[in-house]
Write a protein that binds this DNA or RNA. Structure first.
Length: 283
DNA sequence: ATGTGTTCCTGTCCGC
DNA sequence: TGCGGACAGGAACACA
């Protein structure tokens, strides 16, 4: 569900409400999401100041004054919404918790941050801040696609010799961290690379254009506030609008928009997930 | 080591 | 309007 652009949009929405502020109270309304919450999570969060809100791949990291970091993953259907901001001098009341509002933070000053996740594939955990990078969920993640480590030479070295289709290679969070089903499809189309192509068989020209293409798709999507299909919302409840810029995702049967390409977008299934691509211009 | 299929969970949509 | 099946933005895990 939420991929890197959606998670980054959520992080940016939380910054003005949480960064530098104190979590007055954490209300943990069930014992687990995908995994059990850490022992005493509510107590370990309540009263803590959020020193910084960072993102690693699809994880939001909230560094606390206790030198612990709250790790948040949205899974497939997770949302974070803010209510009760002080607008124009008036405090708006908080609505009653809704179905699937699993964790609620009341922030000093009156804002409320609500984690809602119908499918509960999301997760939260606490880890000492200086050890976050060795948390079992984060330790094997590949480089950030928008960072300097993600380069042409890096991609050539990790893809070399691999027989997986490119779709699976880019979905593999060890190769590059943060892409999901939508942005892999979109990036491969923009780079004119077939999702079925074996990773180890890419030409050097294809590898060379894949790096900036991935960065561009993600940056365009972040600028648009992410993509809203079903569940995803920005923290203020607004929809993202990058879905209007999809060239292939969920567009089976529609014409390819690559100039001079008269192809028709096709849907196939690769390792159990939908892939959309143009068989004509993606090689 | 690498690659593929199944699984977790709830909600929505589509055809009958 | 109800019912069954397919499908959904993730990714750990079990297995070939």
């Amino acid at each position: 569900m939420p991929e890197l652009p959606e998670v980054e949009t959520v992080r940016r929405g939380l910054v003005p409400v949480m960064e530098g502020r104190i979590i007055a109270r954490a209300d943990v309304r069930r014992p687990d999401l995908r995994w059990p919450f850490p022992n005493g999570m509510a107590e370990r969060l309540s009263g803590q100041r959020v020193a910084a809100l960072r993102r690693r791949s699809k994880y939001i990291l909230a560094d606390l004054n206790s030198d612990e970091t709250l790790i948040i993953h949205l899974g497939m259907s997770g949302r974070i919404l803010i209510s009760g901001e002080c607008i124009g001098g008036f405090h708006h009341g908080h609505p009653a918790p809704e179905k699937h509002d699993h964790v609620i933070f009341d922030i000093d000053g009156g804002a409320r941050v609500i984690f809602n996740d119908a499918r509960r594939f999301g997760a939260m955990d606490l880890m000492p801040t200086d050890a976050v990078q060795i948390h079992w969920l984060l330790k094997d993640l590949g480089p950030e696609p928008l960072g300097n480590e993600f380069s042409e030479s890096y991609l050539a070295s990790v893809l070399g010799g691999r027989r997986v289709p490119m779709k699976a290679a880019l979905l593999d969070q060890k190769v590059v961290a943060g892409l999901g089903n939508i942005y892999v499809c979109e990036a491969l189309h923009r780079a004119r690379i077939s999702p079925r192509r074996q990773a180890g068989n890419l030409s050097s020209a294809q590898i060379a254009r894949l790096v900036p293409t991935i960065r561009n798709v993600l940056q365009d999507a972040i600028y648009a506030g992410g993509s809203s299909l079903r569940d995803y919302r920005q923290t203020d409840g607004e929809l993202g609008y990058f879905q209007h810029s999809f060239r292939v995702y969920d567009r089976a049967g529609q014409p390819c928009q690559t100039s001079d390409c008269k192809g028709i977008i096709k849907r196939i299934v690769q390792s159990g997930r939908s892939t959309y691509y143009c068989p004509r211009c993606q090689r």
